[in-house]
Design a protein around this nucleic acid. Structure first.
Lengths: 345, 345
DNA sequence: AGCAGCACTGTAACCGGTCACAGGTCCTGT
DNA sequence: ACAGGACCTGTGACCGGTTACAGTGCTGCT
């Protein structure tokens, strides 16, 4: 009983198979599929049935080839690796973007470009027109990747204003400055006067703006801005610990700390405790982001809520606009202060 | 002065443009590109130069259409949302997979299917042959998505054995059973005898196997397995806290806790402290995963290192094998115990 | 009656690659 | 001298869609 070895990979039905099954031409099937042209109700019905019967699904590559649109968006991370999985913001933003893209029937291509070699490959890939657009996460302004992408005229939307590229790259950002200001004003309202800050990197918009909000608040209330109370971090937990040590060193009197990220605040808390300062008794602490981290810290962290869900949605909306020819644009979404135990009201 | 509106979108060069520029046929250019057939060194040189001059890059959609391979892999998450960004494992695995795929010139398509609607869309997409294969993260065995994918004969590799699909779905997993056993044997060696455990979900392989390792160790040392010392969690921090309360309730005498994830251990620690138990003085605690979390907890957490970097690399290797027709296969990679302050040696 | 125009459908060209096949050289062996 | 192979190249068919264009049949108007 020699059985013919029929390969079990039954070919997927094509638009022609559906057409034959329905007794119409393949152009009609195509028209039913994207439904912008005139087709008789009868034809629509017949084709629909044939599609259901054959289990047809369109081949996206053929479609992309014909239309010149890929139907996919790159989500590009350029942060060094250790920050990626320490900071829950990335995953939250990623999740939001995935959702927003999925709603628009776009697929999400994730690219991580940390090493110089990866950056080159990524640049070539993105400039090569493989994707319809790029979502950029907290890019640093000096990055050569940026100039390449801009030059290749790839539609881009960044999360956070890109210093130096405001005209060419659309962006969506939280209102970091107001957020920082509201955090510090809250501390002032609680009676604090010797307020220190741990900033983010000063080549990122968030780092600059949150610091600006800090100085705004102090100046608005007639409190001098002391350089000894400003220390720079890199968003990460470890840098928060280092910064806290430095602050205690430079100004042992401080009665409040505004950290520009929850992670840095989380790094600062144990340092303060070990130095004998109780939180919020001796020192009040406010973070920024309202990441999952904030509520679970001990004490739970007062923080400025960074509305990542809104941001991810707006990024995708904006990117589709840019792809359709809209000129670059920056959007700001508001932040809100969330008060918890590290600086109770 | 009517200016002709010349669109500034200079078309990308095609293989035909390169051929004309080089003075050869387009087939020759194609041959140089994928270099498996005979081409004269002279032709190679000329084509290379023409490619450099024109700035040609291949159109991936045309290539996919002709070859039938998409050059992309889906990374599919099916966990409900809150676990995604609480558990650093996901991001670590994601990062590793991104790296491994990038090394093989494959692109990573991220899909998150939490809601029923997303699951349907995802199933259709993946079954439709849009990607060459799927990487599955900690799938639960009852998931209908699984049977659909298996039926559609999509190459799949899962992280963690998929209960019920061992024959059809390849998988890569840590040696959870040995890991659990080594954790508990370490506790026994430290003199603990009343050892409780907080398990993972019992419809996941990791949950089952780590628990099995726990009972293995107890039985091997003649310690009875008490049901009152086994409580189930869902991997998440909150469930660890709940479980710890329940354990203290059911067996106030306990002198050690083995949590099947670092996150659950992290949830348990403050509960133990609040109940007046010092760690490691009164109760020793061991976690599982060696996520970034473990080292930063107070006290730092002894844990079983889950080698996610190895796992991601193996998953991608295995998936490419499966795509090339290899029969499904399961791989186990070893774990190692990392001793820290929560159960010092 | 003749013709415009609407509603609909089919043919064929095209998107940009891959690859089977059919040559054409040139060299070697008999 | 010529068959046959190794090396190299070009032509043309195809992958599976989209879409410009050319109809066809019917209605309604002059």
């Amino acid at each position: 009983m020699s059985q013919s070895i029929v390969p079990n990979v039954r070919k997927r039905p094509t638009i022609r198979d559906v057409a034959r099954e329905a007794g119409v031409s393949y152009a009609t099937v195509s028209r039913v599929l994207n439904g912008r042209e005139w087709v008789s109700p009868e034809a629509v019905r017949v084709v629909r049935e044939a599609i259901a019967r054959t289990g047809y699904t369109a081949n996206p590559h053929a479609r992309s080839l014909a239309t010149g649109k890929s139907g996919s968006i790159a989500f590009l991370l350029t942060e060094p690796q250790h920050l990626l999985f320490e900071d829950p913001n990335f995953s939250v933003l990623l999740r939001g973007v995935a959702q927003a893209l999925s709603d628009r029937e776009l697929t999400l291509i994730l690219m991580i470009a940390s090493t110089p070699e990866e950056r080159n490959r990524t640049t070539a890939y993105l400039s090569g027109g493989h994707v319809d657009g790029v979502l950029l996460v907290s890019p640093h302004s000096g990055d050569p990747l940026l100039s390449h992408l801009v030059q290749a005229e790839v539609p881009i939307v960044a999360c956070g204003r890109v210093l130096g590229y405001e005209q060419q790259i659309s962006s969506v950002m939280a209102d970091d400055r107001s957020g920082g200001r509201s955090a510090v004003e809250h501390l002032i309202a609680m009676g604090c006067t010797k307020i220190a800050t741990i900033t983010g990197p000063q080549d990122t918009a968030g780092g600059v703006d949150r610091l600006q909000g800090y100085t705004d608040a102090l100046l608005a209330h007639g409190i001098p801005v002391e350089p000894a109370r400003i220390v720079h971090g890199d968003w990460g937990r470890a840098s928060g610990a280092t910064a806290a040590r430095q602050l205690l060193d430079q100004d042992p009197e401080l009665d409040a700390v505004f950290a520009a990220s929850d992670a840095m605040a989380a790094g600062a808390l144990p340092v303060l405790r070990e130095a004998g300062r109780s939180v919020p008794g001796d020192v009040r602490v406010v973070g920024f982001d309202d990441s999952g981290l904030a509520a679970t810290l001990d004490p739970s962290l007062t923080t400025v809520r960074h509305p990542l869900d809104r941001i991810s949605e707006e990024m995708v909306r904006l990117l589709t606009d840019v792809i359709n020819g809209r000129t670059p644009l920056s959007i700001t979404v508001p932040t809100t202060l969330v008060i918890r135990d590290s600086s109770p009201a």
